[in-house]
Amino acid sequence: MKKTLVILIIIALLLSFTALVYYAFRHARGIPVTAEKIERLTLEVPFIDREIDLSEGISKEPWDSIAPKEVKLMYQVMVLPWPKVVVPTVTVKAFHNGKDIYFYMSWKDDTEDRDLDVNKFSDACAIMFPLGKEVQPSTIMMGFIGRANIWQWKASQDKEYWLKEGPKVKAYADFHYPFEETELFPVSKTVPKSAVNDLVAIRVGTVTPKEVQGQVEGRGFWRDDHWHVVFKRAIEAIDPEVDTIFEFRKKRLSAFAVWNGAKGDRGGRKSISDWVELEVE
């Protein structure tokens, strides 16, 4: 009798365990968690009923009411040489007023580099927005894989555009592709239509200024070892093929880059961020 009972207990145990394993197998197959989700920084773009006239400055007031986001930057990977230093972080903020969208970037820079000369380069910053809905383009080289719209503000161009002061020297270097100015005789150099270059790219080596410039405005100030730069553009895109489309309550990607001219950053040598998600409220 006892033997039968022991055998029954063993059978019951084995069956229960098998059932449990079977359940676990079935259950587990339903939720295969193999890797962490990619968690991106989100930059909220709130509605603030304010307009900034950049000709009068970048206006401190609306920016103070917006929570900043610290975006980490890393070296731009490129064929040697790499940038000498990395700008570790850039503070970004954004808002819209229903008509225009504004971005604010601020980063630490010990020197204000607005003048171009031989072996002297301008500080700059940029925002990239991928275009289209295909495979996510990489931030690498600001438009490596897919189409992208890039807004690049340059301190030298800012001086030229807002302060109407052209380069003091007749020749300056260097003209490294991309993000550098077209190599021209200074006499034939056109007057910029904005402090911001509005660019498009479809893959590596294709960064090209758009035919129509001036849609994106920008202005920067250097104060207390920091740059403060504001970008402004109308929310409505003029040409959806090449202009960034901002849709309300929809997430879209963006990336940020900073050049430190005093450390030799120019062209591809810069500090770049990973993707940051924009959420226009």
Binding site: T34, A35, E36, M74, Y75, Q76, V77, W82, V86, V135, Q136, P137, S138, T139, I140, F144, I145, D274, W275
Partner: peptide, 25 residues
Amino acid sequence: GQEGAVKFVADKTGRFSFRCSHTCG
């Protein structure tokens, strides 16, 4: 599509492990 980059001066000697810092499986 998104590459990572680090640059540093190898000022400490010895053997150092580099390991994945993001759960990949």
